[in-house]
């Protein structure tokens, strides 16, 4: 890292290890994420990227080591805990309900209601209005917030997922291969959306196999290999070739 230890890290992972039976998925991983930056996490398949991300989003709990989020030790036992703390995850498999509308998906399990308890009635108008605002602040081109997700293209769906992740005052948005299933144009649009998130002050953790994309978008990159975090580079001070060499192990950090 640079010498600016004064600014506190948004996320700091210290010596985190996690094993599944005899498989050591993570070994002494340490890395940090800065607020307001896009941080990329790269590595070969099975290097432990997804496992690490799941530790951050509350799906797994590390066996050893600490995760600090926003200065506080983070002990997330469910994804709900992580969400409440301000960590949103955009899942690889697009976690949207096709037969519900865009606004219903944006507010799924966070519905705005009138009244309390079992007699609470949905405030549809407020949710539609708010959904419209969320969609337009991110300049997402969705036909209408009242159309069902089934009618949207892959890119539009990904945009809605990202919009949902960004919408609820989240501090960190984790994206696992957000453009893997998209075409060229759609990828470009989603990339713009990711940059927009950074402009709006969200930190983004981006898992990607696309080095060109990492070089284009990220501010910092962490390289994982065989369960270890082997290197961290500022994007401005590295090249695609160096990252590839770090991933394959041709170059030791």
């Amino acid at each position: 890292m640079t010498a600016t230890t004064v600014t506190h890290d948004l996320v700091s992972v210290e010596n985190v290890s996690l094993s599944f039976g005899s498989v050591r998925a993570l070994r002494d991983v340490s890395l940090t994420l800065q607020p307001g930056e896009i941080t990329a996490l790269v590595g070969d398949n099975g290097a432990g990227k997804s496992t690490l991300v799941r530790c951050l989003s509350g799906i797994h709990r590390p066996d050893d080591g600490t995760v600090r989020f926003d200065g506080q030790p983070a002990h997330f036992s469910t994804p709900e805990d992580a969400r409440n703390a301000g960590i949103e995850t955009v899942h690889q498999n697009l976690a949207l309900v096709e037969d519900l509308t865009v606004w219903q998906n944006l507010f799924l399990n966070r519905e705005i209601v009138h009244g309390f308890g079992p007699l609470a009635i949905l405030d549809k108008r407020a949710m539609k209005r708010e959904a419209q605002r969320m969609v337009s602040t991110l300049a997402v081109n969705v036909p209408s917030v009242t159309s069902t997700v089934r009618r949207l293209s892959g890119g539009q769906r990904q945009a809605v997922s990202i919009c949902r992740a960004a919408g609820f005052s989240s501090k960190l948005v984790i994206m696992d291969e957000p453009t893997a299933a998209l075409g060229v144009q759609e990828t470009e649009r989603v990339e713009k959306l990711i940059t927009k998130l950074r402009e709006d002050g969200h930190a983004v953790l981006l898992i990607s196999h696309n080095f060109a994309q990492v070089m284009r978008l990220a501010d910092h990159v962490w390289v994982m290999r065989a369960g270890r975090c082997v290197a961290g580079r500022r994007i401005a001070q590295t090249t695609g070739e160096e990252i590839v060499a770090l991933i394959t192990g041709a170059q030791q950090s």
Binding site: T78, P79, E80, R83, H91, N93, L94, A95, L96, V97, E98, D99, L100, Q104, N105, L108, N109, R110, E111, V113, A120, I121, L122, K124
Partner: peptide, 22 residues
């Protein structure tokens, strides 16, 4: 018009997505 109803449709439409949102 209730959260329960929306969650019923969500759980039926995509159990994975419903679970992912808690």
């Amino acid at each position: 018009n209730t959260r329960f109803g929306t969650h019923v449709l969500a759980a039926g439409g995509s159990p994975e997505a419903a679970t992912a949102t808690g």
